[in-house]
Design a protein around this nucleic acid. Structure first.
Lengths: 144, 144
DNA sequence: CGTTAATAGGTATTGTAAATACCCATTCTG
DNA sequence: CAGAATGGGTATTTACAATACCTATTAACG
């Protein structure tokens, strides 16, 4: 049972942005703070933007910020969006394929139910519940 | 959110065995019926055996059979065993690594809770609920 | 109006872990 | 003792997530 690191990082980005909801975060800044490449993070940012979780603005002083108050963004919804296209098992994916036990399989329904329970549990919390305050500045001098 | 195919096949093996709880299944037979290599299936069988879900017997007429009645095997337990070592996100794995937001992260607890909810939902069913009856024999003559 | 800072987005590459295959030892039946 | 079955290590393949790179496009600011 695994979430992709795509989802992992997406959540961290949103956590961080929820910590200072009023300002825009550039992809470069977030990438630096989270320790991954700007390019990769930009991909996640695009996904979140297209899904309507964040808004982005180009140009100088631009960046991304939450599209709605953090208190209105449920974690289950966020995970649903970030894990889009990931099927719990092959049977439940877009190409059900040639499963030998087609109509007789009573497992699929149970897995779907469990997945729903997973997301429902996450929906009990919002982004505001896991917001992350800004990191402590490293004082004057050269930060490593 | 994904289960490994290892888990997927493990579940199907158990479903099939629960359909005829009184007889032993050889790895060759199960592999043939489920359409995967004997070697790979044997690996899964070993894992299930070591975890105590099935018993195995070598030699002629040997094979695997359920260690307990199917009504006493909860699906959550099965998945817990098959997904052993799979962490939902890297943070929750054996090597928590160098997470920048160490003690301040409030996400981990939520994910753990959701994972528990997932497994608890599965625990509402047992193997008996998803048992799979034997496939329809291909008429008289030589069954492949 | 040009320069610069930023996202948009495609494509190509890399890396890793799951999935698979192969081989031989071991054990049990008959 | 022969044959049927699991046990279990190791090696290979393959799929896909993760990463990198490159070039638009867009907006702010002088």
């Amino acid at each position: 049972m695994r979430l992709t690191s795509f989802t992992d990082f997406g959540l961290r980005m949103l956590m961080r942005m929820a910590g200072e909801p009023m300002r825009a975060f550039s992809s470069a800044e977030l990438a630096d703070e989270l320790g991954l490449s700007r390019n990769h993070l930009a991909k996640i940012m695009q996904h979140l933007s297209r899904a309507g979780l964040i808004g982005t603005r180009r140009g100088g002083g631009g960046g991304a910020l939450l599209a709605r108050p953090a208190t209105e963004m449920r974690l289950g919804d966020v995970v649903r969006i970030l894990e889009e296209g990931q099927a719990l098992v092959e049977c439940l994916g877009v190409d059900p394929g040639r499963c030998s036990i087609d109509g007789r399989c009573r497992l699929k329904a149970r897995l779907r139910s469990a997945e729903t329970a997973f997301l429902a549990d996450l929906d009990r919390s919002t982004l505001a519940d896991i917001a992350l305050s800004p990191p402590i500045p490293s004082g004057p001098g050269v930060p490593a």
